[in-house]
């Protein structure tokens, strides 16, 4: 190989090296600035609140919960009972119960979804996490007590409904 040809190859390699270096610096700056400029707006708690209200309106539209309408299968698929598709509710976990008196116990208990969201939520609340991890925290909303009528085998009773909704992240 002639000296001239070697020099051309050497220059080519040198150019590629510089280009790679410049690209690396540019992408490093871009990556860092991307982290600072990106932001995530968390609306999961609001989604949980809206879902809780929708379920409440579905179960007791006029303030009366008719137990005869909710069979055993529906109790474990309460979102499906309320007309939601599985694809829409895959991020949700819902659980609730209606209690007339302490002696009588729960008149009805219902749920749907992945209960693992409860301990994920607990984990986030008990541990300090950075901003990047915090964006994965599930949202939640709890209705402690709502008074309503429950129709149980034709008997109208006053009951307290408790409802909890958890929403997983959308990523």
């Amino acid at each position: 190989m002639s000296k001239g040809k070697r020099a051309v190859i050497g220059e080519g390699i040198s150019t590629i090296y510089r280009l790679v270096l410049v690209s690396f610096v540019a992408f490093a700056v871009f990556g860092l600035s991307g982290i600072f400029y990106s932001t995530n707006i968390n609306v999961r708690d609001i989604e949980a609140e809206i879902m809780a209200e929708n379920i409440l309106n579905c179960l007791a539209p006029e303030g009366v919960l008719d137990l005869s309408l909710i069979n055993e299968e529906n109790k474990n698929n309460i979102l499906k009972y309320c007309g939601y598709d599985d694809s829409e509710t895959s991020r949700f976990y819902v659980r609730g119960s209606a209690t007339s008196s302490a002696e009588e116990g729960a008149l009805i208990e219902f749920s749907q979804g992945d209960s693992g969201l409860i301990w994920i939520k607990d984990l986030f609340e008990k541990t300090k996490t950075g901003k990047d991890i915090k964006k994965y925290e599930p949202g939640s909303f709890k209705i402690e007590s709502v008074l309503m009528y429950v129709l149980d085998s034709g008997n109208k009773k006053v009951a307290e409904l408790e409802l909890e909704v958890f929403v997983n992240n959308e990523f």
Binding site: T15, R18, L19, V22, S33
Partner: peptide, 20 residues
């Protein structure tokens, strides 16, 4: 070298401006 560096930074600035 200047042209190539300019192209790299132009691409970088376009991408950055969309973030900013």
């Amino acid at each position: 070298n200047l042209i190539l560096t300019g192209i790299v930074f132009a691409v970088f600035m376009i991408a950055l401006s969309s973030s900013m």
